[in-house]
Amino acid sequence: MEKNPAIVDLHQVDTIYEGEKIPVIHDINLTVKKNDFLSIIGPNGAGKTTLLETINGILSYTAGKGKVFGKQIKKHKNSIRKHTGYVIQNFEIEPRAPFLCKDVVMSGRSGKIGLLRFPTKKDWDIVWKSMGLVGMIDYANRAVGKLSGGEFQKILLARALAQEPDLLLLDEPFSNLDFSARNQIEILLNRVHDQYKTTIVMVSHDLTFLPTRCNRLIVMDKGSIVMDDTKDNVLQSDLVHSLFPKGGKQ
C-alpha cells in the first residue's frame, strides 16, 4: 500500500447487477482525494446510486480495479465500511417502526465498535455529539417512525456521522426536504467537511442545490462518467444544459 493513497480509486470499473447481463455502470475511472467534496449529478437511472454502492462494496464490480483508502474493495469490504458513512436514497421509514432515534444513531457505530464489544460511554458521547451536530438531540428518545421526512433525514445523517467516517457517501440527501431543512443540512455538510476533514461524495439530481464547499462535479449519463471538472466549469458547459433542460430543477 502506497503512502497517502487516494480515498477512492476506481480504474475501468464495471458493475453488473446479479442476474443481469449488461453492466449498469461501465468503464468508470474515478479518483477522490482526501477532503474532496464532490457531487455526482445526472438524470434518473444514470447509475449514480450504483456507483456509490460499488464504492462501499454493497455491489461488487465485475471488471476493473477498485480501491478505497488504498485497500482493495473486494477484499477489505468490512474494514472499509467501518470508516465509510452511507445515507441511502429515499428511505421512508414506516410510521410504526420500533426504534428510538438514539438507537438508530448508535446503529451507525455498531460495525466500528466491533463484534463482542458493548458500546461504552465514549461511544454514547459520540452519538450525543452527532445528534447535537444535526440539531436533533431533543429527539433522542423519540420513535423514528414519528419524525417528519426532514427530521428523519437528519437522524440518518447523524447515524452516518456517529461512525466518525473518513468518507461520507450521501445519496440525494436533499430530496424530500423543504427549503429550510435543505439549508440546515447544507450548513452541516459544509461544517463536517471543514472541521473533520471528511471526504464527501454526494449524489444529487438537483443542480440548484449544491453545497458551497462542493467544488467538483461528476456528470453521469447512461452508466458512464461523461464529465469530471470543477463546479463552475461543469455548470457552464453545454453538456449539462442538454442533460438538464429544465436547469436541473425538480
Partner: peptide
C-alpha cells in the same frame, strides 16, 4: 443494507 454498509456481516 445500512447495517451492511456500516461494516456488519
Amino acid at each position: 443494507k445500512l447495517a451492511e454498509s456500516a461494516g456488519i456481516n
